[in-house]
């Protein structure tokens, strides 16, 4: 069963086409990456999947819910993390998680917060204001917020942007472990090829709002005659392929 089904999705801002009629499905439990250069349409696609932007055309179905008619039913079972959207800096880590726990209707919330703090290794930070955390600690908090409701679908926008290699690697480990334990579907937009190669079952390559290639990282490397996904990305982004 498809957790995410996208058909003919387009977004135009006046004369500018941000997303040009893309279609794809993500099966339950898969991790899929949206790859593309800046302005390729990744963030707009994520924003439409989250209901933040209304498509100009096309249809989005998440967990069986039509996002045009029933987006709140889907949003309750999804979650999202991005380094570009913050959490209130003056609230403590625990308070931030409480806010989102209540918003998502998480049962036994305090237990869930302690559980996440243990799994993501931030128990000593629970009473610290979020604004005093390091970039790596903030990323862990953002991930905890994104996992607070045991999401069936997780959307991530550049989840390891601005993280040091060690923290980024740990975060990938947590995501892989969460997917393995929960069967969660993850769609992530990223520029980090190592991340995509390590985590993703399938890659959707975007250029100028259209999907120009798709397949597993290995399939794409084989198809483009390259050893690494980064070389495939550069070929596509520069219009060589």
């Amino acid at each position: 069963m498809a957790a995410i089904r996208v058909e003919g999705l387009s977004k135009r801002y006046g004369p500018v086409t941000a997303v040009a009629g893309i279609s794809f499905t993500v099966a339950a439990g898969e991790i899929v990456a949206l790859l593309g250069a800046n302005g390729a349409g990744k963030t707009t696609t994520l924003a439409m999947l989250l209901g933040l932007v209304v498509p100009s055309a096309g249809r989005i179905e998440i967990l069986g819910h039509d996002m045009a008619r029933d987006r709140f039913a889907a949003l309750a079972r999804m979650n999202f993390a991005s380094p570009y959207v913050a959490l209130p800096a003056r609230l403590s880590v625990a308070e931030n998680l409480r806010v989102y726990g209540h918003l998502y209707g998480v049962p036994r919330l305090e237990r869930r917060i302690r559980e996440l703090a243990g799994e993501l290794d931030f128990v000593p930070l629970l009473d610290r204001p979020a604004g005093t955390l390091s970039a790596g600690q903030k990323t862990r908090l953002a991930l905890a917020k994104a996992l607070i409701n045991h999401p069936a679908v997780l959307l991530l926008d550049e989840p390891t942007a601005s993280l040091d290699p060690d923290t980024a690697d740990r975060l990938r480990g947590w995501l892989a472990a969460y997917r393995a334990a929960s069967g969660c579907t993850i769609l992530l937009a990223s520029h980090n090829m190592t991340e995509v190669e390590r985590l993703c079952d399938e890659v959707l390559m975007l250029r100028e709002g259209a999907i120009v290639a798709r397949g597993s990282p290995e399939e794409l490397c084989a198809r483009f005659g390259r050893e690494r996904l980064e070389a495939v990305f550069l070929d596509i982004a520069r219009g060589v392929a």
Binding site: L50, G51, A76, M78, V85, A86, P88, L103, Y104, G105
Partner: peptide, 18 residues
């Protein structure tokens, strides 16, 4: 405005909050 200043609005609008 507090939600805008704390750059938190994006999280709120993709939550189940109507």
């Amino acid at each position: 405005l507090e939600e805008i200043w704390s750059r938190n609005l994006g999280h709120l609008f993709v939550s189940p909050l109507r």
